[in-house]
Amino acid sequence: MSQKLRVVLFTVAVTIVFGGLVSGLNALLADRIALNAQAARQRVILHLLGLATPEAAAALPADQAAARFAAEVRSRTLGPGPDGTTAVCFERAATTAASGPALLVFPFAGQGFWDAIRGYVAIDAGSRRIAGIVFTEHAETPGLGGRISEPGFAARFQGKPLDQPAPDGRRLRLVSEGSAAQPTEIDGLTGASETTRAVERIINRTADLIIALLANPGGPQP
């Protein structure tokens, strides 16, 4: 066997063996990984809809999170808005017209400093205020921008109104940490200016969409 052929065959063989090992393990655990990701989303939505405390939601095993989500939460499509956009949101399954303004949970996503920032925001559809927010995925600098996933940062958004846009169009402004004084101002993160700007951009874009869709909800759809 020629040396060149031997090199090629060896390379192909090693690639098949180790590629197969990785693919096999991935195939073996794919369902479990998908279940983990889905359970993580469901725990966040249960918490934002007030159906479980953050600690209780985090402690729910994947199967129980799925069962409670199926029983207590329903999805709803809002829109189309002025530009034809629709959005899927989540609300309590027990919500009725008689039970008052709904709490709606919307997913959001946008570019952060290093990578995408994703999460969910709960809006009180009656008062148009933020009822809660959780940043579920990001790759911001640990200890600096990474603090967006801390409960203390999320608490700064609590009760903030989305229906009072400033002349420049921003509904919420993230300002220097410790200097928020107006109802539409939120303390940013010291040492993480780019992350703070990214969060402000993402939240305002999401808020624009939500307010537009709430003005023209299009009715609940199964």
């Binding site: 090992l21 990785v22 393990l25 655990l29 990984i33 983990n36 993580a40």
Partner: peptide, 15 residues
């Protein structure tokens, strides 16, 4: 291959 194995195991058991 070994690094991806770690990543898959973490995703599955320590998400």
């Amino acid at each position: 291959a070994f690094v991806i194995v770690i990543k898959i195991l973490l995703d599955a058991f320590l998400p």
